[in-house]
Structures are given as C-alpha cells and as structure tokens.
Design a protein around this nucleic acid. Structure first.
Length: 946
RNA sequence: GGGGGCUUAGCUCAGUGGGAGAGCACCUGCUUUGCAAGCAGGGGGUCAGGGGUUCGAAUCCCCUAGCCUCCA
C-alpha cells in the first residue's frame, strides 16, 4: 500500500477527496451546520446528503448538478455504544453527489479510481457489495472495472437498499466498498469457520431468506460480517425510483447518486490503524485526556474505553456548541447535555473529580480549528458552555449525595430514621428487607435519584460499593427505565385538522400574489368568500367573512409579525379587515366584517391597509433584526432566533443563550441597536435561492420551511445604488415587512429579559411610537411622584429613603409603645390570678391587637408566676382569638394547652390546638369570647381530674 | 410534547396545621494583629404568585410562573 510509507493525515484525506471531485467538475459545497436549516423534522444533520435533500426532492435547483462536500454529521442512535472501537456520535462524511447527472458507471469508476489511485489502496483488498437484484451495478464492477467475481457480494434490502427518507421520496439500491484489513483480524469470530464464504453461497442463502423467509445464517466470513476483518469504507446510493405513499416505485426520469465515506474510517484504513481512535484525528484529544488523568492509552481495556468516551464526546460537544447548540432539557440541547455528562461520568471513572472538560475541549479546538474556523472563533464560548454544564452537573451530584448517603446509611443501620426518599421511590417493607438481604440498593431508589435529580445510576453503584458494599440492581433499573419510556410515549398524541385546509382548497383560489412590501393600497378582484368555513357567492352587511383576493397588499401573519388590518372597498359595499392570515401556503385570507352594503365574487375592489399600524409592526420587525444582530455581537454567535413576535405595541425575541443576561449586557445590546438606528442604515430586500442566501451568510430561522425562492433582508450593506457590500450589520432570511432605513425605527427600549425554559431566553422591547409613549408615561409617573413627595425628580431617591427611614422608626416606636402597654396590662393581670384546685390560672380578655402581643403577655406571666395556666383572649380584626399556655410542671400533671384552647373555642364557634405548652384558637362569635374564657376554669379542673 | 422534583434571609439550606429558623455572608462593639480567627450584639423575610380548605396554612388541595431533572 502506497499510503503506508507516507500515510495521509486526516486533513489531507479531506482536502484531496474534495480536490479529486473538483477536478471532475463537482462544485465544492461547504459543510452545513449540524443544525439542519429549514427541516424541522430533523434533529441533526446526520449525513452528507441532508443539506441537499431539497435538490434531490426536486424542490430546489442545485447550483450545479455535480456536488461534493465534507459534511459535519451527528447521530444520536448509538450514544450509549460510544466508547467501543466503532461507534461515533460526531463524524465527518465525505461525499460526491449527482443530481440527475451521471449515474452508476461514473459513480463506480470515481470511487474505484479514488480508492486505488489517489488513496493507493491495493485492489486485492477491495471488496464490493451490490443489491441482490442490481445486475447493472454488478456488471459495471465486474466488466468495466474488472473486479473478480469472488470479491463481489450481493446483499438484500437491509444492507444494500436506501430510502425513501420518510413516507415517500427517492429510493434505490446501494453499492458499498469494503476494505479487507486481513484475515487474521477475524480469527475466531465466526460461527463455523474463519474462511470466506463464496459470493454464490451467500447470495443463495440471502435469496432463500428474501423469498421463503428462511433466516440466513452465514457460517463463515463475508464483507458485512460482524467480525473486525472488514471496514465499510464507502456507500454509493443509486436513487433510481420514486416511491409513493402506497409503496409503489416508478423509475425516476433522471436518476441521482448520493455517496458517503466516513472520514474517520478512511483515516484508519489509510493510516493502517486498527480503529478511528488511533488516527491523527483523535490522537491529540486522547493524549490530552491521558495528560489530565495521568493514565496511558492502551494499558487496559476499561481505561481505554473511558478515555475514548471522554475524547469522542468532548469532540462532538465542542462542534455542536460551535454550531449554536446550548445544553438544555429538550431536543438538541438535551442531546448535548447527555454527551457532556456521559463524558464527565467516564472522566470520574478515570479519577478526575475536578472540572476537566474545558481542557479536553481546548485540545479538540486546537486539532480542528484549521478545518472548522467556527471552533476557534467560538473558543471562549465553547469552553464557557462546557464549563458551566460541568459545574451544573457537579451541583446535581452534590445535591443528590446526601439523599443517597441517607439511604445507604439506613440500609446498613435499620434503627436510623427512614429517609423520605424511600417512600417517594415506593419501596415498602418487603422491598427493604429484600434489599438488605441481597446487599443491594433497590433499583427504584437509583431510578428516582436519576429521574428526579439527574444522579447517574453508575455513580450510585460506585459509591454504594465503595463505601457500603452495596450494589445497584442494574437490571431492575433498566426495567424501570423502560416502563418510564412506555408511560411517556403514551402521553404523545398528534391532532390534525384537515377539514379547515380542504375548505380553503375547495375555494379553488389557489395562490394569492402578495405585493405589499412597498405599498399599502392596491386594486384587485374578489376570488373567494368564505362564511363559517363555507364558500359563498356573496355576503351582506354585518356578516363575518373571509375574503381571498387575486392580489393583495395585506401582510398575512407570519415570521412573528401580526397580520394587517384595513379596508376592502367594492362597488356595492365595504369590508373592515380585522386580521390577515395564511392558513394554507401561498393563500392569503382577509378576515373581517362587511361594514356596509354587500360584496360578491368577482367584485373589483380597492384594498387599503391601515398604514400606521403596519408601520408600527414594521418598526418592531426591523427592531427584532437589530436586536438579533446586537445580541449576536454582544453575547456571541451562538445566539439563534427561537421565535419572535412583532406586534404593533411591542416586540418579543426568543433565543438560545446560557444563563441570564446581565443588566450590563442588556444595556450594551440596547445601546448597540440604537447606535445602528441613528446610523440610519439602509434596509434592502431581495429574492434569492435558499442555498445562496445561507452560503452568503444570511441567518435563517430554524423551524421555518422556506420555499425555493426566499427573501433576504439586509441592514447596512447597500449603498445608494443598491449594491450589496460585505459585512452587513444584519442579514436574515425573512418574509416580513420592514422600514426602509433603520432610522425609522426611532428608538429601541429594552423592557426586560426573562427565561422561557432551559437554555432559552426572551427579550422584550418597544420601538417607535410605543417607545415614545413609554418615555412619556414614565416621566409622567415620575412627575406625579415628585408632586406627592414634594421634591424635584433628582432628589426623589433621597427623599424616598428618608421617608422609609421615618416609617421604619415610627413602626418601631409604635411596637415599643404597644409592648409597654401590654406589659402594663400583663402586670395588672397578675392581680387577677385565680386558684383552681391549687393551680394558678389567669384567664382574661385583653386589649391586644394581635396574637403576638398576647403571647408576649403570656410569656411575662409565666415568667412571673413560675407555675401557671394562662388563657388570654382578644377580638382581632373581628374574630375572637385565644392564646393558652401551660408551664411544664402542669403539663406533667395532665394539662394540655392545645386541648384547653380547642375546647374553649368550641363555645365561640371555632376550634384550635397546638402544643402542650402553647396553643391558640379562634372562633366566629366575638360576643362569646368572655364565655369561652370563663369555661377555662372548668377545663383546667377536668384536665387535672383525668 | 410528557413524567418527577424544587421555589423559605444576600448565599447554602432545615422546618412535623398552632411563636419563621441554622450556618455562612453583612453591620456594630470587644478581643486579637496570620492561615475558614474568636466573643458579644444587631440588621435583613410578599415562606415564588394567585385561589381554596381551616378558628388558624411556609406546611394540605387547585391554578399559574420560574428553575432542576428524566424521557421523546
């Protein structure tokens, strides 16, 4: 092998692959973000063809029919497998694509030339697979390329058929290239023999499986075998059919090719390494983990496994963060959180009990900065996010630790108090006994710790074993976990309302042309009228209608911007439009009431948007773009729009961010936005293709589905002739209406910033008229306060402080006076001590204004009299209240303050209770307070008797 | 989107239907000039918000919000 003398490093494999295809007229497309743009159904970009899906689906025109790329990819399916030699979450996928251009012969030839020529792999080590029925591909490999039959294998649908992705779409057979690492790698890993099966034998076996359902059980080795001999290097997908919803396949007029080669695997093969972790793509990261832990890679399998987990997850996490993912409790952010935490867990296993992920992330950034500049651009942010997540996880563990310690302690020493968590986990006495008998920690406990506190079961096990000799029942844990999955799945339900959509479709109006970006009035014709969801020919005064026009200048609610209001005037009547919506893509519906006369299908009308209101919304919409750009500039490029509202009054902007914004950051954002407003930047819009827009650097809001043609809005990049310059302040894909220059926004005032869930923040602001109104209102409030406090605005704060200090002093003095009064009253009560069978009793109505005072009087009496029963009453805010006290010596003689209070209160229509020494009671009949207190004498007598 | 948990002093958190607490931090004084100093005193609370049950709710019930966590 030529590569073995001077093996290619990962970077040159990447670049030479791209160059190879560029030389063959392919256009090099830069890697798209790991966050798929415009495809809300997909969590991550998981393969090279994902960004090109609209091209393959025929929804968009590709910039060229031959494309090549090295695509960052992320797959969540085998996170828990990562750590072995094979699985990765993040990987780079090299690929060449033909969109209706060349097909099998060229694709095969390219792949062969690249492997055996550019990569210098020995042809004898290359094995080829094709689909059972794909004789075309077989013949090309055999006749044109010259691969001998003994190295061409056929496989069925599970191995060599692709697609469709989803319910319908392009689909077709695949052909794969496998690299033979040598027979010795597979020794002892086969059911019967380590010898290769012949292609004919395997084909016959797979045919029987496909036709007769007899499971294929290969006894020997073959390219798709589970042993470690073969590496699947390259997958060529031949999209030659279109499969519809019923599963019927029709040949595509222009078949396409999609191929994918994992960069990491290619590097392992070309560098002669046993697995991807030994390649130069991983080695620097592995080395950094070793430096941190003081361990050596290759010393023992358990250590190696942990090192690989840390390295892989740190790499994946860094790239995810550089693409704008931030840890959170759901979706992408949750996947990121999981891999960071999994890495920390394995780091712990390597003896790292202090934060270390930022250091590993640094190694990742250093290694990949050249290929992915976004990594070094976001270096600080990546490290900060990883560091924060690490501290948060350590916090969780710190919180869970005492809970776990209590349980472990209780399992070992049964006479301790049972921890509450046991009950939460639903562990009964039997379960407890079983756990103690088997020296194990009940799986329900581990589950609750994990489910509620994020405390990993592996850690419970580790601590349990080390400190108490107790292990976690992992099987039981997995059962609990599976049960939870079932429960959560049951909670899922999707409701769709198709009837509404069809009502609009039945209108037959199809598509409404929108011409409202630069005008607010238009002449058009009524194409459809809906009343209560039914198409009608006309409508009369007072009726609620929905109107479809041939062409409109009314903006339909979308992109966070509210729909327009206005008037549609026809020859015989007028409609007040209250809202404009787009219930079906491309169709604009005006909702409102016929205000005068009547309207009918076909009427020629003039439509007029309420322009002041439209302008308010436009100001807010432009305001969100300014905010978005300012936020990215101040907080970092990870800021990504998650939703927005551009109403007429205020605007709202939701975005990803770690933690709350500081007041300083809020001010900086506001100040930057306002300086751009004062610069009066030109706001220009033009139409382009989605791909071009994104390639030029326009921000696109994930979650929106963009069509073939999109509109991009720039602020601050066009000169007076309308030519675009580099580096606009703001550049977004957006269909909303905007002001013509930022100065029209007026002023932007940030109202506040708040959380809307993990990793998501919301900022609210006002612009233009609303901002002015806010200032007017606030200064009016200030003036009013200033009048009331009799002080100029500048001195308000000092004046208020003085008032508060005064109030404070007065309150204290009042309390003190009251206390003195109460003391005096208490003293007078000393003269009214009665004797009930040798027990001193004070029972009296007082003038106390709160229960507190009565307690203080009681305390005083207890202190003075040593041994006494006190029952004090007062009417507080209309309700009779009683406080009772019994000194400890009398409690010993059977008296109970709580019982006395309760029984006495019955006489005034209430109840009460408390502790033996102190209690209180209340009632509903103030006039019975005296009687209640009188009854205490008898209650004491009864209490002493029993 | 669904499940579980939490929200009490500036911070970390106890709190069992009947007097809102501890440690740290803060302030004052004393003591001492050294490693988390010590002693004494003090200030600081919408017990997340709202509703309900009750004579009485931080505590029980319901709703809302925020945060943590697991799952999708």
């Amino acid at each position: 092998m030529r590569g073995s003398r001077n093996p290619m490093d990962g970077d040159s494999i990447r670049s030479s692959f791209i160059r190879f295809f560029e030389e063959r007229e392919h256009l090099h497309m830069p890697s798209a973000s790991l966050i798929p743009a415009g495809d809300p159904t997909l969590l991550f970009t998981s393969a090279g063809m994902v960004p090109f899906k609209p091209f393959f689906m025929g929804e968009q025109t590709p910039p060229r029919r031959r494309l090549t790329s090295c695509q960052k990819s992320f797959r969540t399916t085998d996170i828990d497998e990562v750590g072995d030699h094979k699985h990765l979450t993040f990987f780079e996928m090299l690929g060449n694509f033909s969109i209706g251009d060349y097909f099998k012969p060229d694709a095969v030839a390219f792949a062969w030339d690249l492997c055996t020529g550019l990569f210098g792999l020995e042809p004898e080590r290359m094995y080829v697979t094709v689909h059972l029925d794909d004789d075309e591909a077989y013949d090309i490999w055999h006749n044109d390329i010259g691969v001998p039959p003994e190295r061409i294998y056929r496989y069925g649908n599970s191995d060599n058929w692709w697609g469709p992705a989803g319910l319908e779409g392009p689909t077709g057979p695949c052909s794969e290239l496998h690299y033979d690492g040598g027979a010795e790698k597979g020794i002892g890993q086969h059911p019967v023999t380590d010898e290769m099966m012949t292609p004919d034998d395997l084909t016959a076996m797979l045919r029987r499986e496909a036709d007769e359902g007899i499971p294929a059980e290969p006894g020997g080795c073959h390219p798709n075998c589970d042993c470690e001999r073969f590496v699947e290097l390259w997958n060529l997908v031949f999209m030659q059919f279109y499969q519809d919803l019923d599963g019927v396949r029709t040949p595509l007029p222009a078949p396409s090719v999609d191929t994918g080669m994992g960069l990491e695997r290619a590097a392992a093969v070309l560098q002669g390494k046993p697995n991807v972790y030994e390649t130069d793509l991983f080695r620097p990261i592995i080395d950094s983990v070793c430096r941190l832990t003081g361990r050596e890679y290759g010393s023992d399998s358990e250590t190696d496994y942990a090192i690989r987990v840390v390295a892989e997850h740190a790499r994946a996490a860094s790239v995810l963060i550089s693409d704008g993912v931030v840890p959170s409790n759901s979706e992408r952010g949750y996947v990121l959180r999981r891999i960071i935490r999994r890495a920390i867990r394995y780091g712990r296993q390597l003896g790292l009990d202090r934060p270390f992920m930022t250091d590993v992330a640094a190694a990742v950034i250093d290694r990949f900065a050249a290929a992915y500049p976004a990594l070094s651009e976001n270096r600080d942010f990546i490290q900060r996010v990883v560091g924060l997540e690490e501290t948060q996880f350590l916090d969780n563990i710190r919180h869970g630790m005492p809970l776990l310690e209590d349980i472990l302690h209780y399992l070992k020493t049964p006479d301790a108090n049972p921890p509450a968590l046991l009950e939460t986990a639903g562990v009964d006495a039997d379960g407890l006994a079983a756990a103690r008998a088997s020296e194990s920690i009940p799986s329900a406990v581990a589950f609750v710790l994990y489910d509620t506190y994020g405390f990993p079961p592996e850690l419970v096990d580790e601590i349990g074993r080390r400190e108490y000799g107790l292990a976690v029942d992992m099987d039981g844990f997995n059962v609990e976990m599976e049960a939870k999955r079932e429960r959560d799945r049951a909670g899922h339900q999707v409701i769709g309302s198709m009837e509404i959509v069809t009502a609009y479709e039945n209108l037959g109006a199809g598509h409404t042309a929108f011409d409202g970006y630069y005008r607010t009035s238009i002449e058009s014709r009524i194409l459809g009228i809906l009343r209560d969801g039914e198409a009608v020919g006309q409508a009369t005064r007072g009726q609620q209608v929905e109107i479809v026009l041939a062409e409109t200048c009314f903006y339909a609610e979308g992109g966070g911007q509210v729909g327009d209001r206005g008037v549609i005037a026809g020859p015989n009547g007028r409609v007040n439009v209250e809202d404009t919506q787009s219930p079906v893509a491309g169709l604009i519906v005006h909702r409102g009431v016929v205000a005068e006369g009547d309207i009918a299908l076909g009427d020629a009308i003039s439509a007029q948007v309420e322009s002041e209101r439209r302008l308010d919304a436009s100001r807010n919409h432009s305001g969100t773009h300014l905010l978005h750009a300012a936020l990215r500039s101040i907080l970092g490029p990870h800021v990504r729009q998650a939703g927005s509202l551009c109403d007429t009054g205020r605007l709202r902007f939701d975005f990803n961010h770690v933690g709350a914004m500081t007041p300083d950051e809020q001010l900086s954002v506001q100040s930057l936005a306002n300086s751009k407003i004062r610069e009066n930047l030109a706001v220009t819009a033009r139409e382009t293709t989605y791909t071009d827009a994104v390639r030029d650097g326009a921000l696109a809001f994930f979650g929106d589905r963009y069509g073939d043609v999109v509109r991009v809005v720039r602020m601050g990049s066009a000169d007076s002739d309308g030519h675009d310059h580099a580096d606009p302040f703001s550049f977004e894909v957006c269909g909303g209406t905007h002001v013509h220059a930022t100065g029209q926004v007026g002023t932007l005032v940030v109202l506040g910033e708040s959380s809307i869930g993990g990793g998501m923040r919301r900022i609210e602001a006002v612009t233009g008229r609303a901002a002015e109104e806010l200032v007017v209102q606030q200064s009016a409030t200030l003036q009013a306060i200033s009048q009331k406090l009799q002080a100029p605005v500048q001195e308000l704060e000092a004046r208020l402080d003085a008032y508060m200090a005064d109030t404070d002093a007065l309150r204290r003095r009042l309390a003190e006076t009251e206390r003195v009064g109460m003391r005096a009253e208490a003293e007078s009560l000393l003269a009214r001590v009665r004797d009930v069978e040798g027990v001193k009793l004070v029972a009296s109505v007082t003038s106390a204004s709160n229960v507190e005072s009565m307690r203080e009087m009681g305390d005083y009496l207890k202190q003075k009299l040593d041994s006494v029963v006190v029952a004090l009453g007062a009417v507080i805010e209309g309700s009779p209240m009683i406080v009772t006290m019994v000194t400890p010596d009398l409690v010993d003689r059977g008296l109970h303050a709580g019982n006395i209070a309760r029984d006495a209160a019955k006489l005034m229509g209430g109840g009460g209770g408390g502790r033996p020494e102190t209690a209180q009671a209340g009632g509903r009949q103030p006039d019975r307070l005296g009687a209640a207190l009188d009854s205490v004498t008898n209650l004491v007598r009864d209490g002493l008797a029993t």
